[in-house]
Amino acid sequence: MLARLPSIRLTAAGLMLALVSTGASRAEEAKEGMPQLDPHSFASQLFWLAIFFVLVFLFLRFVGLPRVTAIIDERAKTIGGDIASAELLRAQAAEAEKTYETTMAAAHGKARQLLAETHEQNSAALTEKTRAAAATFDLQVGEAVSRIDVARTEALKGIREVARGLAADITIKLAGHAPGADRVALAVDNAAGQENA
């Protein structure tokens, strides 16, 4: 059986070669059967188990677990701090956005107002100018019309003189005698009246 445990023996041998070689092995004396029921080993097993368990418990209680819980607490604190600062930054961003929107809205309103004012001013000026221009035009048109009337009257008057002269000349050529000036004027006026009608 000892031959089946070379690794354990090698491990132990480095430290306790002399002791191992002098130590009596119970397995060689043990009879066939369950080694678990051999009471010779009970004292040793209980003794070492008690030391082992107490050491494990004390180590965990005073060294191992405080170290682990410290790490876990530290992590929770770090994560909590990160979340808090992220929350703060988000609030700041929201604040900035609100400020931006307020400013934007104010600027929009101002621009609209300015636009409306300018539009009003422009249209008033335009109306004024249009009216002035229209008055000027009316005046000029009126003057032009009266000038045209005068010119037409004069022209018409001229045409009648020419027509009378012509009529008198034509009558002399055709009839051989000069018609009375008032008869020529009447005939011309009649012809002009017919044409006008």
Partner: peptide, 27 residues
């Protein structure tokens, strides 16, 4: 197959008449 459960003494220790040797179990 029960031999694998055998206890081997590595360092014999006796305290007050009790055999509390360092065994493969203790190791």
């Amino acid at each position: 197959p029960l031999k694998q459960f055998a206890i081997h003494t590595l360092i014999p220790i006796h305290i007050g008449g009790y055999d509390v040797s360092f065994t493969n179990s203790s190791l």
